[in-house]
């Protein structure tokens, strides 16, 4: 089924080259620790934005509370490590499953809502989780640290405990995650699930009247999205070595992830990648250059970009490519017509 010619398109080749550069980046001597850190975060957000896209784009449910799965992932993995001695390599998968189960319950309960109502409920749930985690000192007898959160003390390097001095190991973890997630999204988009989700997004009632099991496919989308978000959240927790309810169940993070996906192109494959690849470095660069006083500036820019995109480019930045192609095509057509007319007149 795989056509060799189709695979070797210019785009695919370029993407492979970029990935190779990324893979070799940490080995170049001139790459500083900060470049590594920045690329780590960018890749993490590309990963998260793609995961979000599964439910926000493919399934059409705009959630602004998706960060709750990040929080669940972080807390489960950290608590398993601190109290159960379970390595985060295993812990992260357990965290993902826990998140998927919770997502399943949430989805089952909230999916009958459409549009804005769904968004409202997602934010309410996020707030609920945050306040609950901040208010409770322990869960099932294990300390959660309440509002203070949990800290992973530095006790030397440890591979099984994901404790490293340099960020390079995390770099590769995020790189692999990012690649696998985008591949997964590509797979979903072109699979039966993807087709059904597209149908549901376009016209849910028509799809259901044709026999498509709406709830099943939406749940599949939400659970896989939640699983991925939590996986990322677990690794992120070990990357930061300290977590607390406010930063893990963070509305701003949720909004940023949604924003990147929308700006890039909701429901497309490269939209989230493009959105995150542009906006994360922008944010970090602004924080580094404008420093303390103007630290809110990046959010102002985010907001302006979002407004402009919604107004003028509702399908996201990836649609620029289509517009460009369309214009080129039209120009070509005009040329051909002119040539034809010229030859007729001869």
């Amino acid at each position: 089924m795989i056509d060799k010619k189709k695979l070797l398109t210019p785009k695919n080749i370029l993407v492979t080259v970029v990935l190779l550069i990324l893979a070799l980046l940490p080995i170049f001597p001139t790459t500083g620790a900060y470049a590594i850190q920045l690329t780590c975060l960018t890749m993490l957000f590309i990963y998260w934005a793609s995961a979000y896209n599964i439910i926000g784009g493919f399934a059409g449910h705009t959630s602004l509370g998706h960060a709750c799965y990040v929080g669940i992932g972080a807390y489960v993995a950290v608590m398993l490590y601190l109290y159960g001695g379970i390595s985060p390599w295993i812990g992260m998968f357990i965290a993902g499953i826990v998140a998927a189960v919770i997502a399943g319950i949430i989805g089952y309960v909230t999916f009958h809502m459409r549009g804005s109502y769904y968004t409202l409920s997602s934010v309410a749930l996020l707030n609920c989780f945050r306040i609950a985690m901040a208010a409770s000192k322990e869960i099932f007898g294990f300390k959660t640290g309440g509002a203070v959160g949990l800290k992973i003390s530095w006790m030397g390097e440890s591979v099984s405990g994901m404790q490293f001095v340099s960020k390079v190991p995390f770099y590769y973890i995020f790189l692999v995650f990012m690649i696998l997630c985008v591949l997964l999204c590509w797979y979903i988009k072109n699979s039966k699930m993807g087709y059904y989700l597209a149908a549901i997004t376009t016209n849910q009632d028509a799809a259901s009247s044709l026999g498509v099991n709406i709830m099943q496919y939406k749940l599949m989308a939400l659970c896989s999205s939640a699983f991925l978000m939590a996986l990322g959240g677990a690794v992120y927790a070990f990357f930061l070595t300290s977590i607390d309810p406010l930063s893990m169940f963070n509305y701003d993070t949720s909004a940023r992830i949604m924003l990147m996906t929308v700006v890039g192109g909701l429901g497309t494959l490269w939209g989230p990648v493009l959105g995150a690849a542009l906006l994360v470095p922008l944010n970090e660069w602004m924080r580094a250059s404008f420093g303390a006083r103007l630290s809110g500036l990046s959010f102002v820019i985010y907001g302006i970009i979002l407004m402009l995109v919604v107004m003028f480019l509702p399908k996201g930045l990836v649609s620029l490519k289509d517009k460009y192609e369309k214009r080129r095509y039209e120009k070509q057509q005009a040329k051909e017509v002119a040539v034809k007319e010229a030859s007729v007149h001869e």
Partner: peptide
């Protein structure tokens, strides 16, 4: 359908207002 674009637009507007 429910106009999500307006929600997104006003979300962006809110961000700009608050951080400005």
């Amino acid at each position: 359908r429910e106009p999500i674009s307006c929600l997104l637009f006003t979300a962006g507007l809110g961000m700009v207002m608050s951080y400005s």
